[in-house]
Design a protein around this nucleic acid. Structure first.
Lengths: 127, 127
DNA sequence: CTGATCGTCAACCAAATGGTTGAATAAGGG
DNA sequence: CCCTTATTCAACCATTTGGTTGACGATCAG
């Protein structure tokens, strides 16, 4: 269990990986589409996705030649409990969360629209 | 701000550092006393404390020749908001947190008693 | 079958991390 | 003043991390 926390927290420590999770909050995505907004090789993103997988933060399912990535928010539960125990923080402030989303997505003024559009452009592989 | 999250999450990714935070939940502690339960050099603990400092998770104050370490749980606020946004988890389950505490403290069957006792043995330096 | 696309693997690299030891600084106590 | 205690600093080391490139196995399209 402390092993789990190690993996979850260190997965979250990288801004690229947090941005990926944020993108997946919108919708499931193919590996190539996840990689698209980053200035980084596909192989690098593939490694990041492996880290997120091993931490249990996402799952991956191959359909055809496309591998779909899905957010698994339950993996954050233990870590969230751990953290909140320290402060007994007031109830979640969703406005604050919205600000994080805006701050962490890779560039792009309107992240929501773009993410959806990107998925759509190559959506032909989906059953 | 994403810089802050980087530092907070990567600070939390190490079990030694999480254990230190857990100990400090009990009470403020001198560096030497923090180091005592770990099988690791004092210098190593000193480095861990520096990491926790830079993440804002603790503060340190030197009184005499003793440097006191104090938990700063507010630093967890942003990170906690970030995480909870993903799952909208139900209110904190304090029992679950207690289990984490037990699991993460360095060995010792009765962590609570020992931590307090350790502080007391060298408590002579406190004003 | 052939060719393009999707994704990972392998080898490599630079930088960061987590630990060690030994010396150095700072402050208190006799 | 000298000795002990408290803590950090500096140099070093092994391992991990985050990235690159190029080759490769799978899968789909024509």
């Amino acid at each position: 269990m402390r092993q789990d926390l190690d993996q979850v927290f260190s997965a979250l420590a990288d801004p690229t990986r947090r941005a990926i999770l944020t993108m997946l909050l919108e919708d499931d995505m193919a590996v190539t589409d996840v990689a698209e907004p980053f200035e980084m090789s596909l192989a690098a993103i593939s490694k990041h996705l492996t880290v997120l997988m091993q931490a249990g933060l996402i799952s991956q399912e191959k359909r055809g030649r496309v591998k779909w990535c899905k957010l698994e928010p339950d993996a954050l539960k233990d870590a969230s409990v751990w953290m909140q125990g320290f402060g007994q923080f007031e109830p979640v402030n969703l406005d604050a969360f919205e600000r994080f989303l805006a701050a962490e997505l890779p560039e792009q003024p309107d992240a929501t629209a773009t993410a959806t559009a990107t998925t759509a452009t190559t959506g032909d592989d989906r059953p």
